[in-house]
């Protein structure tokens, strides 16, 4: 589904973001990327839909090369990849439904979207997406009146309305409290299972990674230093990723 083929990224100032990454993420997997901040987690994730350019190698999603695509072709690939951000990236003063509908602009002509006329089925898709994250009743409420957890669900709904086959989540729970963190992770997990959407998540908390992932990838200085099941991700193995024992603030705690 997602293939990394000798992917490297060197920033203009010489910092290495990614170093010769080769791996394949299969359809329906829920992959969690762990590692220290600055280890290249975000670069890894954002290179999949080419929000970040890579320096060499090739990334393919669903068999199509993201690296070589351009213009309309790239936009069509991106349309199939939903993304969830740490800061939700919603338009705060618009209502929830408008925010979710904005995920569907890739399906329509420029002219039609400029006028803002979405066809009826699109509205139904958007409302259905809100239903899946249990905030259907907030559809006509302004986004800035929702709590952080609810806003993150809106952005998940936006990715769902996109009818994406892959969802990328860049630190989706970093600005949420522990309780809503679990609710959002539960939503992502459920969507992954029920709709068989390949999901890649960057996480800071390693106990969350163990709890939700079907596969954990550990990055250190842009290199893959761990790739295995949650069971294999023992404290010793994680100490290897971090280059030191796991700290308390890297655990969310309170596993129920």
């Amino acid at each position: 589904m997602i293939e990394f083929d000798h992917v490297s990224k060197v920033y203009p100032n010489g910092t290495v973001g990614l170093r010769d990454i080769n791996l394949t993420i299969k359809e329906g997997e829920l992959v969690v990327i762990v590692g220290l901040s600055g280890a290249g987690k975000s670069t890894f994730l954002r290179s999949i839909n080419r929000l970040n350019e890579i320096s060499s190698g090739e990334i393919r999603v669903g068999g199509q090369s993201v690296t070589r695509a351009a213009g309309r072709q790239l936009r069509l690939i991106r349309r199939d990849i939903g993304m969830v951000f740490q800061n939700f990236n919603l338009i705060k003063r618009q209502n929830v439904l408008s925010n979710v509908l904005s995920g569907r602009v890739g399906y329509h002509s420029t002219l039609r979207t400029m006028l803002g006329w979405f066809p009826k089925p699109d509205v139904a898709i958007a409302l259905d997406a809100l239903n899946r994250v249990n905030i259907r009743e907030k559809a006509y409420v302004r986004a800035d009146q929702l709590s952080g957890g609810q806003q993150q669900r809106v952005s998940i709904a936006r990715a769902l309305a996109q009818e994406a086959r892959v969802i990328l989540a860049d630190e989706p729970v970093a600005s949420l409290d522990p309780l809503t963190t679990r609710q959002v992770m539960d939503d992502l997990k459920r969507i992954n299972r029920e709709m068989n959407i390949t999901t890649v998540i960057n996480l800071h908390f390693i106990d969350l990674a163990r709890e939700y992932a079907t596969r954990i990838i550990g990055l250190r200085a842009g290199e893959v230093v761990f790739d295995g099941t949650p069971e294999e991700a023992t404290d010793e193995a994680l100490a290897e990723i971090y280059g030191r024992p796991v700290l308390k603030d890297e655990l969310l705690g309170g596993v129920s």
Partner: peptide, 12 residues
Amino acid sequence: EALIASGANRLQ
């Protein structure tokens, strides 16, 4: 960024 990631063009 969210719009770009969902495949929108510049005008969108």
